[in-house]
């Protein structure tokens, strides 16, 4: 339901891209908000868990949120960034 929120990620997007790129072993510059986590980037369930673990280290408040809640209705990097921003409630510096 959040796929339209591709532009609202702000700096949460930067953190997300950085962590996603590290898991994928790709340069962050190759990642874009519109990319589908699974269909375009090849994320599988273990990688999603890993991503959640890394994001928790950056935003401890995420420990309160389960992975399924974080991902519900989210398909793209941008949408996930939007969800992150709302969940953490913080603009990310």
């Amino acid at each position: 339901m959040d796929d339209n929120a591709t532009t609202s990620g702000g700096t949460a997007l930067a953190v997300l891209v950085e962590e996603a790129a590290r898991i994928l072993g790709r340069p962050p510059g190759r990642l874009e908000p519109g990319q589908h986590l699974q269909h375009d980037l090849g994320f599988d369930s273990v990688m999603l868990l890993q991503l959640k673990g890394r994001l928790e280290a950056r935003f401890p408040v995420l420990r309160e949120v389960s992975l399924p809640d974080l991902l519900l209705g989210v398909h793209t990097l941008g949408a996930l960034a939007g969800r992150l921003e709302r969940t953490t409630g913080l603009p990310v510096a």
Partner: peptide, 17 residues
């Protein structure tokens, strides 16, 4: 199915799994 050698330990995933 999963590669049996896939690293899952020490990635912060145990606590989620």
């Amino acid at each position: 199915a999963e590669n049996a050698g896939r690293r899952m330990l020490g990635l912060g995933t145990e606590r989620q799994v």
